[in-house]
Design a protein around this nucleic acid. Structure first.
Length: 464
RNA sequence: GGCGCCAUCGCCAAGUGGUAAGGCCGGAGCCUGCAAAGCUCCUACCCCCAGUUCGAAUCUGGGUGGCGCCUCCA
C-alpha cells in the first residue's frame, strides 16, 4: 500500500511502525456548530483509509478527537446562555448523527479536549522545563519556535521575512512572531487552574496531548498516520508536531495525510451561501449514501467542487449499483475472492485511488448484468456478483441499504400507498391488455417523479 | 509580499515517459405491447509556446488562466 505523505511530498510505501498494526489520528470537529460538507469530506476520506488499511490485513486503531473547549465555543456560550456541556454535547450528537448517515464508521477512540486537560498541562510543563516554552508576564505560555530546528519541516514554509514580521504585532510579549500560544491566561469565564496560570489551552496542544495519551509508542515515531484537512497543515499540524518533538524527542507521525477542500459552486464555503453548507440540510434532499458516494468520488487530495448537477450524476452511478443489488436480491454469495476484488483493493491501496476503483466497480456491474442478460439462471455469475457487492459494501461503504428502500428515499408513507395502488391498477389494466389505461397510469406516476419497470418478478418502482 | 497547488471529451474524473480508464449527458441499435431498466456500438492529437527524448498528456523552461495557505477553519 502507498500513501502520499505531505511532509516528504512523495508517495511512499506504507510500512507501519509495528508490523500488522496501524495507528491513525485525525483532527475532528470543534463542536460549536453543525457539520458542514468539509467535515463530511474529511471524515469520509479517513473512513475510506481505515477500511482500506483493514482490507490489507492491518489491525487499525483510529482516533478522532472532539474539540469541546476553545474561544469559538466560549463565544457561542455567551451568545446562547447555554452551559459548556449542553452546547458541546448537542453538537457532538449532531455530528455523530450526520456522520452516521454518511456511513462513516465511528473511531475506536474519540478523545475530548476537556477530558485531556491533565495531559495538556503536563505537556506544557515539560516544554517549559525543557526550555522550549516560556511564560510571559501576562500569564500566557508560548512555544519557542526558534528553539526547534525542525520547525516548519512538515509544512515546508520558510521563516517569515523581517518585513512580514513587522506587520505582525499582535503581542509584544512574544519572543518571536511565529511563536504560538500553548496556554492563554484568563481571569474569568471558563478556565482551568494550572501551575502557570488560570486559563485555557491553545488549540494545537490538545491533539499532541491526546496522541500521546491514546496512541503513542516509543521509537522514532509516535503514530503511523496523522490526517486532517489541508488547511490544518499549517499552523495546526506543524505546531502539534513541534510540541511533540520538543517534549518527547520523537516525530509525531510517520505519514501525514491532508484532504483537499470542498467548495460550493466554485466558491469557498461560507455561511452566507446558505443551505447546502450543512450536512444535515443536504441530507434532507439526498440519501446519505448518495452524498457519501459523491463526496468520495474524487481523489481525496484534490479540491472538490460541490454542486447539484454533479451530485445527481453521482447518484445515477450509485443507482446502478442498487439496481444490480435488486436484481440479485436474496441470492447467496460465493466464497472465493474474485479478480475484481483484488483489483479494487489494489486501486484503493494506491493512495486511495477511488476513481480507478469506481471504474472497476462500473465494469463489474456491467459484466454482472451482461451475464444475467445472457443467462438469467447463471447461479455462478450471480453468486460472484453478490460476493463482489458485499466486498464493495465492506471496502467502500456503498450498498448498505435495502435496494428497494434506497429507491424510495424521500417518499412519505401515504404517497407510497398511493403509488402502490396505482401500480396495482395498472397491472390489472395491463393484464386485460388495456394499454391505453395502463399508459395513462404510468404518466400519473411519472408526474409524481416515479419511474416503473416491468420485470419477470413484477413491477418495480423508483423515485427520482 | 512569502510559500504552494491545479489546467485531460459538453460536464465530472483517472492516467504522470510508450502512444488517452470510468461515469453523466448525447446519438444508433437490441430487448419491450409501448416504456423504464439492462446490454451493444459511437464521440478527446490531453491550455499555449519552446526544449529534452527513438518516443511526452506525463520531464524541463517560459507564457496564459484558475485556486489555496500564510488569521479561526475539515
Amino acid at each position: 500500500m502507498t500513501i502520499y505523505d505531505t511532509a516528504s511530498k512523495t508517495k511512499r510505501a506504507f510500512e507501519p511502525i509495528t508490523p500488522g498494526k496501524a495507528t491513525l489520528y485525525v483532527c475532528g470537529p470543534t463542536v460549536y456548530d453543525d457539520a458542514h460538507l468539509g467535515h463530511a469530506k474529511s471524515a469520509l476520506v479517513f473512513d475510506l483509509l481505515v477500511r482500506t488499511l483493514e482490507a490489507n490485513g492491518l489491525d487499525v486503531t483510529f482516533a478522532r478527537n472532539i474539540t469541546d473547549i476553545d474561544d469559538k465555543i466560549v463565544k457561542k456560550l455567551a451568545e446562547q446562555g447555554a452551559s459548556l456541556k449542553e452546547l458541546t454535547e448537542f453538537y457532538t450528537d449532531a455530528y455523530h448523527r450526520d456522520m452516521d448517515a454518511l456511513g462513516v464508521r465511528r473511531p475506536d477512540i474519540e478523545p475530548k479536549a476537556t477530558e485531556s486537560m491533565e495531559e495538556m498541562i503536563s505537556l506544557i510543563t515539560t516544554l517549559i522545563k525543557k526550555g522550549h516554552a516560556y511564560k510571559t508576564q501576562e500569564g500566557d505560555v508560548y512555544f519557542d519556535t526558534q528553539k526547534d530546528e525542525k520547525y516548519l519541516s512538515i509544512s515546508h514554509r520558510s521563516q517569515e521575512t523581517d518585513e512580514t514580521q513587522s506587520r505582525i504585532k499582535e503581542n509584544g510579549f512574544k519572543k518571536h512572531p511565529a511563536d504560538f500560544a500553548l496556554w492563554k491566561h484568563f481571569d474569568e469565564g471558563i478556565r482551568y487552574e494550572t501551575p502557570f496560570s488560570s486559563g485555557r489551552p491553545g488549540w494545537h496542544t490538545e491533539c499532541a496531548a491526546m496522541i500521546e495519551k491514546h496512541l503513542a509508542v516509543e521509537g522514532k515515531y509516535a503514530i503511523d498516520i496523522h490526517g486532517g484537512g489541508a488547511d490544518l497543515l499549517f499552523p495546526h499540524h506543524e505546531n502539534e508536531a513541534a510540541q511533540h518533538r520538543c517534549a518527547k524527542g520523537q516525530e509525531l507521525a510517520k505519514y501525514w495525510m491532508h484532504n483537499g477542500f470542498v467548495n460550493i459552486d466554485g466558491e469557498k464555503m461560507s455561511k452566507s451561501l446558505g443551505n447546502s453548507f450543512f450536512v444535515k440540510d443536504a441530507l434532507l434532499s439526498y440519501h446519505g449514501e448518495v452524498l457519501r458516494f459523491y463526496l468520495l468520488s474524487t481523489h481525496y487530495r484534490s479540491d472538490f467542487n460541490f454542486n447539484e448537477i454533479d451530485l445527481l450524476s453521482a447518484k445515477k452511478r450509485l443507482d446502478k449499483l442498487y439496481r444490480l443489488k435488486k436484481r440479485l436480491f436474496g441470492m447467496a454469495e460465493s466464497d472465493e475472492k474474485t479478480p475484481f476484488q483484488t483489483q479494487l483493493l489494489e486501486a484503493l491501496s494506491d493512495d486511495l485511488n477511488i476513481s480507478k476503483g469506481l471504474s472497476l466497480l462500473d465494469e463489474m456491474i456491467s459484466h454482472a448484468n451482461e451475464a444475467m442478460d445472457a443467462n438469467p439462471k447463471d447461479k455462478i455469475a450471480k453468486r460472484q456478483a453478490q460476493s463482489n457487492l458485499a466486498y464493495v459494501q465492506r471496502l467502500l461503504g456503498f450498498g448498505e441499504q435495502n435496494p428497494f428502500e434506497y429507491f424510495q428515499f424521500g417518499i412519505a408513507p401515504q404517497v407510497k400507498a398511493t403509488i402502490e395502488e396505482l401500480i396495482e391498477k395498472r397491472s390489472l389494466a395491463k393484464a386485460a391488455k388495456d394499454f391505453a389505461s395502463s399508459d395513462l397510469i404510468r404518466d400519473e406516476l411519472l408526474a409524481l417523479d416515479i419511474s416503473i419497470m416491468d420485470t419477470a418478478e413484477g413491477t418495480f418502482w423508483e423515485k427520482h
